[in-house]
Design a protein around this nucleic acid. Structure first.
Lengths: 193, 193, 193, 193
DNA sequence: CATGAATGAGATTTCATTCAT
DNA sequence: GATGAATGAAATCTCATTCAT
């Protein structure tokens, strides 16, 4: 009974899982389709049944995180460019990074390898948009850097806190708070003096 | 008299220059020795006269920034772990990044590709040592993240401020100041309450 | 009543049409079953319901012109080897080429690709038989060449007159007349002196 | 003494020889670089040292006959469009075909496989130019076909006379004479009536 | 009748590397 | 110091074909 058998989960899904796994282990260029196929115990040709090229696998992976970020940007643009909006942007980004973290890390560690590829390029543009939403173009260089720095703390911090003791959740919350302090500083400086 | 002739700078040096140039353009894996040789207008075999393997070129490149960082770490260890020491560490790192920036960027963008390679691994360890010098292991998670965040600001900021208006020098100084605020915050929090 | 429905002509027929179309466009080897299936908007597996192999498609195509030529040869053999017989052979071949022209052209342009395949080989034998019917083995080399040349004019001419102005029908008639002059010359030479 | 050793003739030359040999045996598409390499007893990679792609081998082959034909066309254009010129064109083509015959045959048998490839396309244009030199555009369709037919006799005849008895030289001369009769007929018809 | 999923074999091409000269 | 010729290994990708459903 039930579905006939959909043997071994869904192959397409499994390919993406294993691909990401290997891309993180050895990098995109160093991961051959042979390796992916072997770890899945299918033939290389089977991969080509599900994806037209190696780059299509990449696109599917990057696409999976593109949507949440797009939504985030759309939301940000609909809000007034206030401190509260920016705090909320950081909070939502921090959340989005939690799920999707492996893909974010993959993108971050393979920047050079993926240069010129359309889908990561698209992703990079999204991050640029996000950065633009965090900063006021007329603010001082100092404040702009404070804002970008807040984004960095959330973004890179996620991959770098491994060496610090503490639970993942604890560190995630701490990252967010530090980032919030920085965005607060950017705003305080520009309103108070 | 003097050196025999050192025609055109010195081939070894030129190989390193062009290699770095191409590694930055297409990434380490995607850059073939053929491309390097072609851009230099020599044969591939000529490269092998100067470097035993492709990885040797990588090592020479990474080595060129290893020394300054090693010195920085040695200096840091010889100092007491005070706020002033950390401020000075940030300042010196900021300085070291200026020269050597392309190599740092190369390392940052090719993390996955270089994983498992000895010399970048060595470099990563050095950065870990540096991070350790910036933080007190007994400090709160929050303060540790503040300290690491200061390091990030100096480090990643260097590659990311391209999209902000202002002279390079201006931005470098601003980055340093923001980082200093963060390390100050880390210390203020842990000494005051 | 009548045939159940013969939806859209008949799949088998459509496969042959599209296959020939593509074989003419890109050549036999360069045409994959995937392309044929895609242009028909069915799956590759569907092709295998109608034909056991790719070569079976080829055989069906070549077979379609084999019969008329077989009949022509049989007719030729039943006649005395006179000038009139040969004139009539040219006329009938010229006629047969009109229908079936695409298949003839396909065979002519893919000789190398089809070498060793049984059915085109069979076809080539038929053409050889036809050439034999056109020539007397004891005639002079010159006259044999005149006769073969007449065959060529009808055969290759059909594909080559595209660059000459005039209606198709006009050109077909002209080709036949030129060929007839050649066969006449072959006979005149051998009977008169 | 003598040249150091130029071991085994000139590799590039040998590749072209063997490639043509195999292209004629199995056709262009069906001949893999593996086969070429094996018959030469070198590795596939060695082929790529001498030719950038498989198509480059093709180009070199076609190019080798392009020049003589170009010269023939240039010569033809410099002459008045008389019967004598055309007789001489046929004679020279007949001569050019003798050397270079295998390449001509290869081109003729692989038309479909080579469609769209630049260098055979170029070659086809040359043949069209040659055909244009043989015919008067204002002549009757009949005479135009007679002229083209003369060209065919020389061209296709070269590959087709294998089945006729006689020495190669004898047959070559006979082909030329038959072609000449046809071009004569084309001119006679248009001047006399 | 036809499809979705998969395979085994093999194609072209590229790469780091070697070595005699 | 440098080159020309070559190699062995591997990569991406395509193809004809099969078979359970």
């Amino acid at each position: 009974m039930g579905k006939p058998q959909t043997r071994r989960k869904d192959t397409r899904e499994r390919i993406l899982d294993v691909a990401l796994e290997l891309f993180l282990e050895h990098g995109y260029d160093q991961t051959s389709l042979r390796e992916i196929a072997e770890r899945l115990d299918v033939t290389k040709a089977a991969l080509y049944y599900h994806f037209r090229t190696k780059e299509d696998i990449l696109d599917a992976l990057v696409g999976s995180i593109g949507e949440p970020v797009d939504e985030l940007i759309a939301w940000g643009r609909a809000q007034p460019p206030t401190l509260d909006t920016r705090r909320e942007l950081l909070r939502r980004l921090n959340e989005a990074l939690e799920k999707g973290a492996p893909v974010f890390q993959f993108l971050q560690e393979n920047q050079a390898a993926l240069r010129g590829r359309t889908s990561p390029e698209t992703f990079r543009n999204r991050m640029r948009d996000l950065a633009a939403l965090m900063t006021d173009p007329e603010a001082s260089v100092l404040d702009q850097i404070r804002s970008v720095s807040a984004l960095f703390t959330v973004y890179f911090g996620t991959f770098a806190v491994a060496s610090i003791d503490g639970t993942l959740e604890e560190k995630r919350v701490a990252l967010l708070q530090v980032a919030r302090e920085q965005i607060d500083a950017a705003h305080a400086a520009c309103t108070s003096p």
